[in-house]
């Protein structure tokens, strides 16, 4: 059975999610993710030619709301949830790189 995901891919995905994994965890997750992908690969044995890709499990579209203002949260209550606050803003550790 071909390998579904490599160690390198697991390390890469972990880096994107800012996760630090031990060597042992990389091995374990490579195996576990591989098993999940193998399960999902079952679909490949089915003939899906001519089947519309599913956007959503519910047969709905255009579910929208009117552009009407609703009450926002009390900022004090919001900021009380944050580990650190300064000048009414969330204080977060420095991030390297820039926004997308």
């Amino acid at each position: 059975m071909a390998q579904r995901i490599t160690r390198d891919e697991v390390v890469h995905v972990a880096r994107l999610a800012c996760l630090t994994l031990t060597e042992e965890e990389v091995d374990r997750f490579t195996q576990q993710l591989g098993a999940i992908l193998l399960h999902a690969a079952d679909i490949e044995s089915l003939d899906v030619i001519g089947v519309e890709p599913t956007a959503h499990p519910l047969p709905l579209c255009n579910v929208m709301r009117a552009d009407v203002v609703e009450r926002s949260l009390n900022p004090d209550a919001v900021l009380a949830q944050a580990p650190e606050v300064r000048d009414g803003q969330f204080l977060v550790p420095p991030v390297l790189g820039d926004q997308p």
Binding site: E70, S72, V78, G88, F90
Partner: peptide, 21 residues
Amino acid sequence: ATKLFCGCINRFGAEPNTNVC
């Protein structure tokens, strides 16, 4: 008048973190 996915006010220049839900 409001944000894309919620009813918070879409307005520039408000006090920080006042239009959030």
